[in-house]
Amino acid sequence: MREIVDLDSGSAATIFSFIKIPRDNPREELGMIELENSLSQAIWKMFDGIRVSVSERLGVDEADILLTDARVIGVKIDGNQIINPSGFTGRELEILLALTMVKRDKFIEGKELFEGGSVRAYLIAKETGFEDSIYVEVGDNSTTIFEVTPHGVSYVNNFDWGVAKLTDSIREEFGVEQTTAQGMYERHAGGEVSEHVRKKMDKIFYDTLAEFINGVIIGIKSARNTKNDLPPIYLHTFFPIPEGLHRKRFSFGNKRMRFLPSAAGSDIEVFASDEVHNRYDELNQLARRRIKWLMPTA
């Protein structure tokens, strides 16, 4: 297996989407030639539909984006999941595709490149059957939000808030060096402080968290109609968080919002080694040939 590179949402876009291809002769059995033609149509249809929005999101011209990966994740006929679609009849073929587009200056020859946050959102979608949900990922300095729907996984937005905000607040409150503040936060998150210190640290944590909560609310409102019930909201952080956070409810207008822990082990290595890629190996080989035709420089 080639080395896997986890890129941020400002460097790459991995898009998961169900693409529907109507069949001209629904009563005829689906053969390999038709399947290959349908896959080519699906890749082009998806690529053509996302390249403008991806270039805008990544902040570069379309000419500076490379289509580096295309793979089949699933196939349905008339809404029914099929492992091997050859020989089936039906009106409509539906292909779940994952396309990855990377900024030219982030491309690395010979490595598998993915937008890590989108892949982790997909792994949650896979477990929940693509039920409506929100996936929130927090790093050192930024938060990224993804939306999961029955149609696929899509990027929502990104805003400046990460663990650095928490350690900065601790540093300012206690007048300590940054490394000391980081150690204090980690002990607090791990429950390794006295009750007196915990209460003071909790206040700092939740006061600083208010900016994060507001950013998440703005992101969710931009993605969906919040007049309806809120979908499950999954939270993944690349740093420890106090245990009580997942039990706490936060105000969202007249609703209450709760962050659910994301599935353990949801990472891009899990996705890259998924047996589904072997199941659709022949189609994936074709998909890789098609992206070279669409974008030879990739």
Rank of each mutant, 00 (worst) to 15 (best):
V5G: 00
S9M: 04
S11I: 00
A12K: 00
F16H: 14
S17W: 13
I19S: 07
I21G: 05
P22W: 03
R23C: 06
E29F: 00
E29N: 08
G31F: 07
N37A: 14
Q41H: 11
K45N: 12
F47K: 01
D48E: 14
G49R: 04
R51I: 12
R51C: 03
S55K: 03
R57L: 03
D61L: 11
I65T: 09
L66D: 08
A70H: 06
V72E: 03
V72C: 05
V75T: 10
P85R: 07
S86F: 09
R91E: 15
R91M: 09
E94K: 04
E94F: 01
L96D: 10
L96Q: 12
D105P: 01
K111G: 03
E112L: 12
E112R: 05
G116H: 01
G116K: 01
G117H: 01
L123H: 04
A125V: 03
K126G: 02
G129W: 07
S133D: 09
I134T: 06
I134H: 03
V138W: 01
N141C: 08
T143Q: 07
F146Q: 04
E147P: 02
E147S: 14
P150Y: 08
G152V: 06
V153N: 04
V153P: 02
N157C: 11
F159W: 10
T167W: 01
D168W: 02
E177S: 15
Q178P: 03
T179G: 01
T179R: 11
A181P: 12
A181N: 10
Q182V: 14
M184K: 08
M184S: 05
A189S: 07
A189E: 04
G190V: 07
G191P: 05
V193Y: 01
E195S: 13
K200W: 04
Y206F: 15
L209Q: 09
E211Y: 10
F212M: 13
F212N: 09
I213R: 02
G215K: 05
G215R: 07
V216Y: 00
K221D: 09
T226H: 02
F238H: 15
P240N: 13
I241N: 02
P242Y: 03
G244K: 11
L245V: 11
R249Q: 15
F250H: 08
S251P: 09
F252S: 08
M257P: 02
R258P: 01
L260E: 13
E269V: 09
F271V: 06
F271E: 05
S273I: 10
S273Y: 12
E275P: 04
N278D: 14
N278H: 11
R279W: 05
D281W: 12
D281I: 15
E282N: 10
L283R: 03
L283P: 02
N284Q: 06
A287Y: 00
R288L: 13
R289N: 13
R289L: 14
R290L: 15
R290D: 04
I291L: 12
K292G: 08
K292A: 15
W293K: 14
W293Y: 14
T297G: 04
A298Y: 04
